[in-house]
Design a protein around this nucleic acid. Structure first.
Lengths: 223, 223
DNA sequence: AAATATTTTTAGACTAGGCTAAAAATATTT
DNA sequence: AAATATTTTTAGCCTAGTCTAAAAATATTT
């Protein structure tokens, strides 16, 4: 089967569709895709037709898109590459977790299968990236981890920060300023009903108060 | 000075022009570029005009192209990135020297300055790539090394293989089969006037006979 | 220097990927 | 169910980068 060439633009659309499908649990609409890709709705319609013709997505006019098996495999592999490169940048080249995303966004398009395999091995076959997101294996399987949003944790419970949902530079830098990195121990001391903010004890020595918005973006593994 | 965006295609043309300028010591003609880029002459004319408009090359109709300072800086930086990535692939990911070129060809287009600096440091600021080609520093300066083509070395002289001029997979694999890698010691035992082939002693223990074509592609540092 | 060969440019066309503005289809309110 | 709002598609246009075929310019031979 002649593995058709897939352009970077096409790859990026597949990844966007994958993420929208995953988050919403249903087919990705034109609007959502155009927002994710920062392109016009008209461009999206064009691209969806192209991807459908290549059998990478299932698409019917006005009904949005879902990935075919092939499309899913490609999107998953892109995510694998993106996350492995992020680990490389942080672990080997000492980048901070808030600076790796745009670089990995370019690196994920490098084509060699062998490169990915060797990189994975070189990094020690990591299961999670620097933001705590799972790295799918070569067959596209994600490691599942028991985790809850900090906003859902009850008073008195203890846990450890294992992931972030939001990846913006400003959010990550805010966490840095609080010394809240992956692996940080947290204990819920108090919850303010007024605005759902919470007072926490981190690493058993420092207290911080986090807004609801922040709490909704932190994944905790309870201990 | 608004650093205009430069596409991968443009970058590849700049690199091709750099190499042709370097090898021929004069302005790069349309034909040579079209051969290097594997594109039609018409496409080259178009691209030369685009590059000239961006002040990356000096170009006049029918007179070929040379790089401007800006163009030269970009081309040199691409070569720097290409060669650093080759070192990464060989030294860190255990790739063979005959498989890294196409992958580095993609990796060299990754944009981050910081990435290059960190990679360089991570690799121990190497001065030569896995084929013995010099890696320009961040300012574009190449390390110069005293070297001669094996075909020019006199009988009885000894030296060390420090570089290859040809980079094809088949040539490199042929060298591998002879156990002729960079760093190999060679002593010239005999030269056959008939076809300019040479008999050599390598690493003081094995004899091989190399054709003139091979001898013209090996760089030796005399001891 | 004329004839011939080679190189380069022009002219016109194509694909990928993007855009805006308007029309059509679907969803949501009232 | 009608009216209104939102989403999606259509139509037409644009740029980058490629192509072929023919014309023009330059180089090489004779």
């Amino acid at each position: 089967m002649a593995a058709k060439t897939i352009s970077q633009a096409e790859e990026n659309y597949l990844k966007a569709i994958f993420k929208i499908n995953e988050k919403n649990g249903k087919s990705a609409g034109n609007k959502a895709i155009s927002q994710a890709m920062q392109t016009s709705a008209a461009s999206v319609t064009d691209m969806l037709r192209r991807l459908a013709k290549k059998k990478l997505i299932n698409y019917e006019s006005h009904k949005g898109a879902t990935l075919t098996d092939t499309g899913n495999r490609i999107a998953t592999n892109l995510i694998r590459k993106h996350r492995l490169w992020e680990v490389f940048l942080v672990d080997k080249l000492q980048f901070a977790w808030d600076e790796v995303h745009p670089i990995a966004e370019e690196l994920e398009h490098i084509k060699s299968e062998k490169l990915v395999a060797r990189l994975d091995e070189f990094l020690g076959t990591p299961k999670f990236d620097p933001h705590g997101d799972p790295i799918p294996d070569a067959d596209g399987n994600f490691t599942f981890r028991q985790q809850v949003l900090l906003s859902e944790v009850e008073i008195g419970k203890k846990g450890m920060l294992v992931g972030v949902q939001e990846h913006s530079k400003s959010f990550l830098q805010y966490l840095d300023s609080l010394e809240l990195g992956l692996g940080t121990e947290v204990e819920i001391l108090e919850r303010f009903a007024y605005d759902d903010s919470m007072r926490l004890l981190i690493n058993a020595k420092k207290e911080v108060v986090l807004s609801h918005k922040v709490n909704q973006n932190l994944f905790i593994k309870l201990v």
